[in-house]
Nucleic acid binder design. Structure first.
Lengths: 182, 182
DNA sequence: ACAGGCATGTAAATAGTTACATGATTCG
DNA sequence: CGAATCATGTAACTATTTACATGCCTGT
């Protein structure tokens, strides 16, 4: 069994339980996992084809009205592949946080400009928090408890991060001495 | 002024203050920003060439003993470019956290296996915390306060995350009911 | 009639990692 | 002398985003 691309598993997971089209998978990803695992059409459609060829998914024609449409359902092999992956310890722990990089180099700016960095970061996290907040009722009414658990983790994380930014703002202005020549 | 690649700025930031070789930049990144902004040789060396051609860096031969070596120092234009970038609000806020994706789909596993996911995540964050802890004294003795500030943010983040995992472990075992057919 | 959403896909560009190749120097 | 580290680089691969193209259906 060859190794699948990272995006393959988000697809397998999304169609488990109920068959979905590429378009629906993309929409679900954007509503749910995008904060920690994104996927674009450019990945999803080719991957659906590969997974079907590998026998892990099966495409079923299922037009809505006259509009043609293919939904993909997971096969027994696909379900096994998904579970085997779920049992492996996670490998990917990546963060690309431009704000932290800027803050790391912020000594190059005068303090009043340096605090702008943490203000931007804070605004971003508060906006993300509000988005998650708006999704919470929908996740809460579902049968599967894990998406809600993860969403509440996101809520807590964005709150922690926003608060850290607030404290850093104070700290930079209060305690960090200005450099002689920046 | 054309837009630079994302990696360009980490290089500009790393050579500001004192000139460094590609090898040293890579080592610094691995010691400091890698938790939120990584870079590989395959990005660094070609980028050093491009930045020199663009006049934002200047390469200076500076062999150590008989071993040839080029360090790059930032030019006035490079300094301006770096500061202009620092003044822009951060654009990139990405996370790719395989553990959260697995947890999101964990309903496919029995509960005893689902908790293994948060246990792995917790172990990972505790290990990261220990690494940051070991770096703290070195950051603390530097003149520039921002790297230390960012590092302490990382310390707090990994602690929060590890604690969240611990609480999720309890919660999954205690409150989340087992499904009829998983 | 037109806007907006549903639906599928691809091409091109950009980003990034991994592995490899090469060779010098330093330290034990 | 051999291992580790310093040092520079490239090729191949993998991953991912963005933009574009197409066209149908539904509601106003």
């Amino acid at each position: 069994m060859e190794v699948l691309s990272p995006t393959a598993y988000v697809i397998l997971g999304m169609v488990r339980g109920e068959p979905r089209s590429g378009y629906e998978i993309k929409a679900m990803v954007d509503e749910t996992t995008r904060f920690f695992w994104a996927a674009s059409y450019g990945q999803i459609y080719p991957e659906l084809k590969r997974l079907s060829e590998a026998g892990l998914l099966a495409g079923v024609d299922s037009p809505t009205g006259g509009r043609k449409r293919t939904v993909y359902e997971i096969t027994a092999d696909g379900e096994e592949e998904l579970k085997a992956w779920l049992r492996q310890p996670p490998q990917t722990y990546e963060m690309r946080e431009e704000g932290l990089l800027k803050l790391f180099f912020a000594d190059a700016l005068p303090r009043e400009e340096a605090v702008e960095i943490v203000r931007s970061m804070r605004a971003h996290r508060l906006a993300a928090n509000a988005q998650l907040r708006a999704m919470e009722p929908f996740a809460a009414e579902k049968d599967d408890p894990f998406p809600l658990l993860v969403l509440r983790g996101g809520l807590e994380f964005t709150e922690w991060f926003a608060d850290w930014c607030r404290r850093m703002e104070e700290q930079i202005l209060a305690a960090v001495p200005e450099k002689r020549s920046s």
